[in-house]
């Protein structure tokens, strides 16, 4: 059944394909247009560079009136990302506007990576290290960047195995 939310999500998807924004990609899951998988590439010249971070976006029928729930699936170490991958970002909460689409959401999260807001910490250790011990912070970030490749490796292996059987 086509609902306003689904119609708009199809529109968002078409735009992502026709005019893909740099450094992010996303697509609805095969069986459910309300759940999307996305990848954000760590921005250049930042500690997150070369990271390939997976996320999920979960929409409700109230989209675009209300924002989707966006979570990192890849392990993240960032002042504004909760342990469960949830993201503390104003446009996903009280500054959400129906004019944001999937591309805008993902590019905002990509910018957040290198421009954390230490005043609203979701991960207090990351916030503290970001402010007081940048070297250690970058070391921790480098670790999750490496881990993000492993995730992709696992998945590739998994697919290979599926083909074999």
């Amino acid at each position: 059944m086509s609902t306003p939310a689904r119609r708009r999500l199809m529109r968002d998807f078409k735009r992502l394909q026709q005019d893909p924004p740099a450094g992010v990609s996303a697509a609805p899951t095969e069986n459910n247009i309300m759940i999307w998988n996305a990848v954000i590439f760590g921005p250049h010249d930042t500690p997150f560079e070369d990271g390939t971070f997976k996320l999920t976006l979960e929409f409700t029928e109230e989209y675009p009136n209300k924002p989707p729930t966006v979570k990192f699936v890849s392990k993240m170490f960032h002042p504004n990302v909760y342990a469960d991958g949830g993201i503390c970002l104003d446009i996903l909460q009280n500054r959400w506007s129906p004019t944001y689409d999937v591309a805008a959401i993902l590019t905002s999260i990509q910018s957040l990576l290198d421009e954390p807001n230490p005043n609203s910490p979701a991960n207090s250790l990351a916030a503290q290290l970001y402010q007081e011990n940048r070297r250690e912070y970058e070391k921790r970030v480098a670790a999750i960047v490496e881990q993000s490749w492993l995730n992709f490796q696992d998945e590739d292996d998994g697919e290979e195995m599926k083909k074999d059987t």
Binding site: C88, L89, Q93, N94, R95, N119
Partner: peptide
């Protein structure tokens, strides 16, 4: 967000 943060 600041309000929410406040609650946290």
């Amino acid at each position: 967000m600041e309000d929410k943060n406040q609650e946290n």
